[in-house]
Design a protein around this nucleic acid. Sequence first.
DNA 1: ATGAAAGCGCTAACAG
DNA 2: CTGTTAGCGCTTTCAT
Lengths: 345, 345
Amino acid sequence: MDTPRPPATLADVAERAGVSRQTVSNAINNPDLLRPDTLARVQDAIEHLDYTPNQAARHLRTRSSHLVGLRLGPAQEFTANMAMDRFVHALVEASREAGYHVLLFSGGRVAEGELPDPLGGYDDLLRSTAVDAFVVTDTYLGNPQTIGLAQRRAPFVAFGRPWDDPGAAHPWVDVDGAAGIAAATEHLRAQGHERIAWLGWQPGSRIGEDRRAGWHRAMTALGLPTAGLEAAVEDGVLAGGRAAASLLGSSAPTAFVCASDTLAVGVLGALSDRGLKPGRDVGVVGFDDSQVAQVMGLTSVRQPLEEVAVHLVAALRALLAPGHGAESGVLLQPTLEVRSSSTRG
Amino acid sequence: MDTPRPPATLADVAERAGVSRQTVSNAINNPDLLRPDTLARVQDAIEHLDYTPNQAARHLRTRSSHLVGLRLGPAQEFTANMAMDRFVHALVEASREAGYHVLLFSGGRVAEGELPDPLGGYDDLLRSTAVDAFVVTDTYLGNPQTIGLAQRRAPFVAFGRPWDDPGAAHPWVDVDGAAGIAAATEHLRAQGHERIAWLGWQPGSRIGEDRRAGWHRAMTALGLPTAGLEAAVEDGVLAGGRAAASLLGSSAPTAFVCASDTLAVGVLGALSDRGLKPGRDVGVVGFDDSQVAQVMGLTSVRQPLEEVAVHLVAALRALLAPGHGAESGVLLQPTLEVRSSSTRG
DNA sequence: ATGAAAGCGCTAACAG
DNA sequence: CTGTTAGCGCTTTCAT
């Protein structure tokens, strides 16, 4: 009994307001063009008829869906998606404020032994005009997709620097991981530590190398030794624990800066095995401020994902609405969330 | 130099194949209607022109966007979103296989002191024909949105039972939390525990009450006492730790079953404070199999979210393509991920 | 089995 | 400032 009738259209509103369809369209998209009284009449009609513009029609006409595509990687890619949840939230919120929605898609299931197609899913969405643009997040893998997308002239913005292609023309936003790690190192120094170890990933990840550089740079600036104080392992709790145990045995560090929360949790376990208390006895800092860090009282470098999302969306708007010049690269500073794992007392 | 020309349309394909537009449309949507040789010719043209149907046009014509809306709550709602990430992944994957994409939206920022609008965002998306249907996840709050959506005749499926409305007509999928907790309780009994405590939430949450019932039922069936062996606190590590400490002091439990991983982490902390080792000395089981549980070696009840997503999408298809009778309610069984926190040795 | 006509609801371009 | 005309690309009649 409630609303069995089909939704109102522009024509319905026009008729009720006694104007043409075009005028209604203008009332919505260019209110300034209308005389105040006409505008009021139209708005009244819109209200009464509970009118909402049909997106499909608008989309077809304007060739703009107001949708941005975000590909969800085949889960658990390395370490990055510990923060993915927060990022998605932030992106949805920032997009909403700009009048966009976020369309999620997957690259498709990756068959056993096959390499995932770095462009899987992008092409169809774009050519079918389902989305206006993409947000690309997994640039830490190297950046095959940014290259591929650029070749296809696909509008996109990247969360992540174009490490391997300084001449890349697309807009990007990234977080200065090296600076975050340097701040963590300085924080530990301020807590009285001098033998501060780096627990990072095996070479091959630009992000990992960047973070390590932050540690090394800070240590050097502080006049502290680095020799024998680092280990590179795969990202995992067990691997982190083993590496920490080994470092503790060989070079007596009193603090650890880690490339990820996962590794830091491993360190925590190694400390516990030796009866050492995090914070009081040995300082530990992780990276990503994941739920795990929050729950375990682990000090961690936190990426300003909300801010990242806002900049990405701003870049998108600039990209899609020519005229607005875009910042083509933005590097944001992370913050250090200090918890008990790095403070004495 | 690559693809500056606009994407091919149906008409382009028709011309190249020497048939009418309609025939091309049929080749795509009803291939059976074409003679094999015509079909081949058309497919050839499609291939050569790299044609992809324009979604906007199809959407306008068929009144179906092939998009399902999923609202992201204002972050951190209670405990549920520890698993949200996994669920979103699963839903995207299941949707893809059914030819749908997932549109994320937010309820809008909730102003200080205001109640969030349970229907915020839904209405516009629906009336603007931006989405075909919704997946509603936050039914644990009670279910104002299911009621509101039902009133608006909005097509939707729910992850979560209609606790307060057994007569609800919408399709739903849920996980049998009580059974999961009962299995956890039995597991602890099999490990030799008899004084198994329940650490749950304050009354008012149907989900919380359901999980507690699973513990109580299992304890009774096992002939074990429950008196003095339970506590109800707000969901948090600190609260969980305090409650565990109190129970340990008052009634000497040797194991804890918890309503969430968060509470279980609190228990772990309390044990550590007393020099007790999880597993060996005291058994602990959490709920949700979050990253925290995986990283800390916490035994936890795991919801089969992939399966949930598949059933939700199946229900959606049935809802949107009348004829296919839908199952209107599905209750799935969780599994117990056994780790060191609940096993001796 | 294929084609022709009509129109989904909207907005860009031009007239008035 | 407002109205008219045309058409975005597709699919649903209905003929053939």
